[in-house]
Write a protein that binds this DNA or RNA. Sequence first.
DNA 1: ATATTACCAGACCGATCGGTATAGTTAGGG
DNA 2: CCCTAACTATACCGATCGGTCTGGTAATAT
Lengths: 209, 209
Amino acid sequence: MHSSTITPIVSAKERLLASAGRLFHEHGINATGIDLVVRNAGVAKASLYNNFANKEALVVAYLEQELDGWIRNAHALDNPLSPRWQRIAALFEALARSVELNTFHGCPFTNAVIELPECAAVRTVAQDYRAVVRTHLASLLGADTTSTAVSRLVLLYDAAITEAKVGRDAALVREASTMAQELVDAHKLEETHPPATRGELTKRDTAAR
Amino acid sequence: MHSSTITPIVSAKERLLASAGRLFHEHGINATGIDLVVRNAGVAKASLYNNFANKEALVVAYLEQELDGWIRNAHALDNPLSPRWQRIAALFEALARSVELNTFHGCPFTNAVIELPECAAVRTVAQDYRAVVRTHLASLLGADTTSTAVSRLVLLYDAAITEAKVGRDAALVREASTMAQELVDAHKLEETHPPATRGELTKRDTAAR
DNA sequence: ATATTACCAGACCGATCGGTATAGTTAGGG
DNA sequence: CCCTAACTATACCGATCGGTCTGGTAATAT
C-alpha cells in the first residue's frame, strides 16, 4: 500500500484512464466498448474490474480526470500578470486554435451528459465542472461569483464551445471572445462608477410575457 | 403510388418516425436500439428496413423531421405583428419554460453530432439546421444574415440551449435572453444612426495575440 | 382472377456488448 | 519460503446489437 511499490512503471489504472481519456473523448463514450479501452491500454480485462466497479465508474473517473485537466489547462493558459481582458481572451483563443487544428472534440462534460442523460453520477461531475468554470471566470473578471457579469461570461464561454463543436467555426468562437471583451470593459466601468448609474435600456424582457 | 391508397390510417413509416422522434430525443440515439424503436412504433421490423436502408438513414430522417419541427415551432411562436424584441424573446422564453417543466432534452442536432461524431450525414443536417436558425434570427432581427449582430444572436441562442441542457438553469436562459434584448436595442440604434458612430471600446481582441 | 404492394409476426444471423471466471506469472514483504 | 497483491491472458456468460429472411394476410391495381 505504500507508494514504495514499484509496479510496472505506470499502473494499470493509469494506463486505463489514459486510454479512456483518449477514446471516450474522441469517439464518444457509448461508441467505445470496454474491450477497446482495455486493448488500447495494453492491460488485462480483469485489471479494469479490479480498479473500477463497472463501466460507469470508469466514465466518472474519466470525467474527474478531465475536470482536473481543465483546471490545470486553465492555469497554464493564465498569466496572472496580464490584464483581465487578456487572461479571458486566452481561454477563447485556445478554443479557436483547437478548432483550426481540428483537435477539438467538445466539452467532455456536455458530451457525457448528452450521451448518458439518465446517469446521475455524470450530471454531478458536470455540475462540479460548471461550478469550477464559474469560479474561475469570476476570478478572472474580478467579480462576485453570483454576479450577472459572470453569468454572462459563462454563457459566452459555453456558446463558444458549442460553435467549436457543432459549427467548427473559429470565427464565431472569436466573436464570442469579442463579446467577452466588451463585457470586461463594461464591468470595468461599473467598478469605477457609482453603482446605480447604468440602466439605459434593459430589464424589459421581464415584461415580455 | 397514388395518395389514394388508404393504408392503416398512418403508415408504418410515419409511426416509425414518430417512435424514433420520441426515443432518440429523450434517451439518446446510441442508447436506443432498433428493436425498441420498432416495438414502440407497433410495427414489424421488416417495415423499418423497407422504408430505411439502415439505422443511420433512420437517424437522418429523424433529424430532418426535427428540423422541420423546429421551423414550424419557430413560426408558431412568432407573431409577425409584435416588435422585434418580443419575437426574439419568445424563442428564449419557450426554452426557459421547457427547462422549468423538465421537458427539455437538448438540441437534437447538437446531440446527434456528439453521439455520432464521425457520421458525415449527421453533420450535414446539423449544418442545415444552423443555416436555418441563422436565417430565421436574421429575419427576426431585421439584419443581414452575415452580420455580426446575427452571429451574436446565434451565439446567445446556442448558449441558452447549452444552459438548458447541461445546467438546467432557466435563470441563465433568461440572462441570455436579456443579452439578446440589449443586442436588439444596440442594433436598432445602429439602424437609425450614421454607420460608423459606435466604436467606443471594441476591436481590441485582435491585438490579444 | 391474379399480381402486386404494404404490412405483420417472429425466427434467425454473426458480432459485440458489459461483465465474470479460471489459471498462471511476477514481485515484494513477513 | 511462502503469502499476498497486482498483474496478464483468455475463455466464457447471457443479453443485445444491427440486420436478414421466411411466411402469411389484406387490400389494391390490372
